[in-house]
Simulated assay, not measured.
Amino acid sequence: MITDEARERVRGWFSGRLPADWQDAPAEISIDRDEIVVTLQIPDVEAGESDAETEEARAGRASAFREETREQRMAIAREAQRRYERTVSWGVTVGGHEELFTHLAAPTMTRLRQPQRQVLDTLVDAGVARSRADALAWCVRLVAQHEDDWLTELRGAMSQVADVRTKGPQA
Rank of each mutant, 00 (worst) to 15 (best):
3 T>S: 14
6 A>M: 10
12 G>K: 06
13 W>H: 12
14 F>Q: 07
18 L>D: 13
18 L>G: 12
21 D>K: 08
27 A>G: 09
32 D>R: 12
35 E>V: 07
36 I>C: 01
40 L>N: 01
53 E>D: 09
54 T>V: 08
55 E>Q: 12
55 E>L: 15
60 G>M: 09
61 R>W: 00
62 A>T: 03
62 A>D: 00
64 A>G: 12
66 R>L: 03
68 E>M: 10
73 R>D: 02
75 A>N: 12
76 I>P: 08
76 I>E: 07
86 R>S: 04
88 V>A: 04
88 V>W: 02
88 V>K: 04
89 S>A: 15
89 S>V: 07
89 S>G: 12
89 S>Y: 05
90 W>M: 00
91 G>I: 00
94 V>G: 05
94 V>Y: 00
95 G>Y: 00
106 A>S: 14
106 A>F: 10
106 A>D: 09
109 M>R: 13
110 T>K: 11
114 Q>Y: 09
116 Q>P: 02
116 Q>M: 09
117 R>T: 05
119 V>G: 07
120 L>Q: 06
123 L>A: 08
124 V>R: 03
126 A>D: 13
126 A>R: 15
129 A>L: 01
130 R>F: 06
132 R>H: 05
136 L>T: 03
139 C>M: 14
143 V>M: 13
143 V>R: 12
146 H>Y: 10
147 E>M: 13
155 R>S: 02
156 G>S: 14
158 M>S: 10
163 D>M: 09
166 T>Q: 06
166 T>E: 01
171 A>S: 00
